[in-house]
Write a protein that binds this DNA or RNA. Structure first.
Lengths: 231, 231
DNA sequence: CTTTTGAATTAGACGTGTCTAATTCCCCCC
DNA sequence: GGGGGGAATTAGACACGTCTAATTCAAAAG
């Protein structure tokens, strides 16, 4: 699992990228998170080791697709929580931030889903900020069931990998599967597994529970920008 | 603040005390929390340093009144969360434990109050276990307002200190205020402060926000046992 | 093409929570 | 009342996230 701190760094870097110009400087991150620059350097090294950010020494960092996925996930948690606290628990909208800031790191995906459902899949939080959607538009799950139905054989682009377990993210990344990867589903091989073929020709077999985390779309479809700003 | 781990140790020790015979052995705690005995020894030393447990070397530990307060607080969080997840988010009662186990360490007192209110101050959780009450029976708050009204001048016993910030707990403990302490409210001195007099004759002035955390009752009143078992 | 200077990194340290291996202690049994 | 044996503690290590102080780098200024 990613530590709470790693999630915070990723979230901060992602936000800074949207405001200013990437790459993001060490000192900027340090100020944002209220830590010293050496601390940022060492944390950023760890993030880079896990391919969550791209790092150029002395220059700064940018998030990778994978890092961005994590950041969006946390931002989604945050905004969903703010909405929930306001709508369902009667918090004043001004006081939800602190609570959400903590809880965003500790809720499960199950909790996220249930809260979103209870709120009727909201698209903006009480501050009016857009809540990053769980699924990015024309999206399916690469899973035995979902795929045997309609996309089998077709070219698909990985849109997101909805998984917060870095062991699995790393596993997928090592196998060459990250957001942006184009793949085809080869067959719905042994029970409980899915086999996909990458553009490189490599074939990868995945257990269903991992395949389920991969969200895909048709390669050429437009990608409506996901508006995401300050929380 | 207490770490998540410290809270877990306290909760475990508290529970073990209720089952078996105190003092609780190092090895018992180790098994419960799935850590090694040396780890328990070192953690227990820290807990003892903060007066959250009483320790007898080579014998074991028992919780102090202060440690018990923390344990009960966490257990209350846990059971309130289980109830909330079940009632309001449609979780199956069998699957709430994991989620509550994590969240119990991260919700604020505000969240706790609002959840309890939303559930109509429940007294048992979905497993049927009693939810430790926020206030112990005939209880008031030692705060400027609460006290200027009815208990001014009377003898009061400290029932609980509802505060999870150890800096404040330590501050109070150092001042001689812990559960069981008998005190009188001297006057509602400068604005935003409360002055209390201890049996020792010492006078302590407290800012309202700390005084608010102290819950008192009349000294001789019965203390109906707070039924609390497994979660 | 130097020099300067401010930012970034390295070096070395610390507190927390954990571990394994070594040692010490308590207490029961003969 | 001395041994043994099992439990507990000490010793020493490590990963994490953080810090300060020292060093190195890069890019702008001359």
């Amino acid at each position: 699992m990613l530590s709470e701190q790693m999630e915070d760094y990723l979230k901060a870097i992602y936000r800074l990228e949207r405001d200013g110009e990437p790459p993001i400087a060490t000192s900027t991150i340090a100020e944002t998170l209220d830590v010293t620059p050496p601390t940022v350097t060492s944390m950023v090294e760890k993030l880079a080791d896990r391919d969550l950010v791209e790092r150029e020494k002395y220059k700064g960092v940018t998030t990778t697709a994978e890092g961005e996925t994590v950041a969006l996930e946390i931002i989604r948690h945050h905004r969903l929580l703010e909405t929930f606290l306001t709508e369902k628990l009667g918090y004043d909208w001004a006081e939800v931030h602190e609570e959400a800031e903590v809880l965003e790191h500790h809720i499960s995906e199950e909790f996220e889903r249930r809260v979103a459902a209870a709120l009727d899949e909201p698209e903006v939080d009480p501050h009016g900020d857009p809540i990053p959607s769980e699924a990015l538009d024309p999206v399916d799950d690469v899973s035995a069931t979902a795929l045997s139905e309609h996309e089998e054989g077709g070219r698909l682009e990985v849109a997101r990998v909805r998984d917060r377990d870095p062991a699995e993210l790393t596993y997928l990344a090592d196998a060459g599967i990250t957001p942006g990867t184009v793949l085809t589903v080869d067959e719905v091989a042994p029970i409980g597994m899915v086999t996909v073929k990458l553009e490189s020709g490599a074939e990868v077999s995945l257990p269903d529970h991992i395949a389920d985390a991969i969200q895909v779309r048709r390669p050429e479809s437009e990608r409506p920008e996901d508006g995401v700003s300050e929380a």
